[in-house]
Design a protein around this nucleic acid. Structure first.
Length: 272
DNA sequence: AGAGGTACCTGGCAGC
DNA sequence: TGCTGCCAGGTACCTC
């Protein structure tokens, strides 16, 4: 399900129910997500107050008075606020029971997501430490991409989907941003000019911001914390549109695969 | 360094 | 109706 806009939509949805609220109990019904749910999460969190709900890339951070919950939604995870008494479904792996009688419920059919606990500053956690700049904050621009790409030859789409280069860009928005910037997804990163990187950085920011405003992209099963879908799917120019006409020029959108992931592009609008 | 594959796991859908 | 195979928004790890 989730790339940066979906994770941010989720964060905004749950934050008002969590910030300033104490966790009374944690129920884990599944021991194994992508990594085992650590015992510390069950033992350390109860009794602590959540101060802030943050996001770093695709990770959601529940910062408490001491210690932080690190959550990742993987491919199919959701977080929802439910009455604490709501009976769990098949894939409801974790409940964070709140003192308000509500619960933050983590659901994840494919179990590629994770829930961890850290006593340290979470940005120093091994999973978060190497993540690149946030695309919507200062520090991410065309110059940055230009410098990172010198003397490298890999394809631009895989480059911008690398979380160590830039945080939060997954398959949908990589395809969309490259279309908007007029860059072919297979183009080698070292052969792209500073000017085109400036355009790409702007396209990435634009597409991510627009998607956040529309509540993310619902293809199959993404729903926000209130169970509502996102409406950015209506604005997709290339993702999932193989064989259909380009919105800009009418030429048929191409579909291929890169690194095992579906890639879509317009061969007229995006030069290799 | 990079490319390609694997693994983790379930559900939905197309095709037969 | 039911089977099979393929696909899916992520990421880390392995080998060549």
């Amino acid at each position: 399900m989730p790339e940066l806009p979906e994770v941010e939509t989720t964060r905004r949805g749950i934050a008002p129910y969590l910030e300033g609220i104490r966790v009374s109990r944690v129920i884990a019904r599944t021991g194994n997500l992508r990594l085992p749910v650590p015992r510390e999460l069950l033992e350390e969190l109860p009794g602590r107050k959540i101060l802030k709900v943050d996001r770093r890339g695709k990770y959601i951070l529940l910062r408490t008075t001491s210690g932080t919950v690190i959550l990742h939604l993987g491919m199919s995870g959701h977080l929802r606020i439910v009455p604490a008494i709501t009976p769990p479904g098949k894939h409801d792996h974790l409940d964070f029971i709140l003192e308000t009688s509500l619960a933050l419920r983590f659901t994840d059919p494919r179990r590629f997501g994770l829930a961890l606990w850290t006593d340290e500053e979470p940005y120093n956690h091994p999973l978060l430490m190497g993540i690149g700049p946030e695309p919507l904050l200062n520090g991410f621009d065309g110059n940055y991409l230009f410098h990172k790409s010198r003397k490298r030859t890999l394809a631009i789409k895989q480059f911008i989907m690398d979380s160590h280069i830039v945080a939060g860009v997954g398959n949908i928005y990589a395809n969309e941003a490259l279309f908007r910037a007029g860059i072919h997804p297979l183009r080698s990163v070292g052969a792209i000019s500073r000017e085109r990187y400036t355009r790409l950085a702007q396209s990435l920011r634009d597409v991510l911001c627009e998607a956040i405003e529309l509540g993310g992209t619902t293809l199959r099963d993404f729903h926000d914390s209130e169970g509502k879908p996102g409406y950015f799917a209506l604005n997709l120019d290339v993702y999932g549109r193989g064989g259909e006409p380009c919105h800009k020029c009418g030429v048929t959108i191409q579909a291929t695969r890169q690194g095992g992931r579906a890639t879509y592009f317009c061969k007229a609008c995006q030069r290799r």
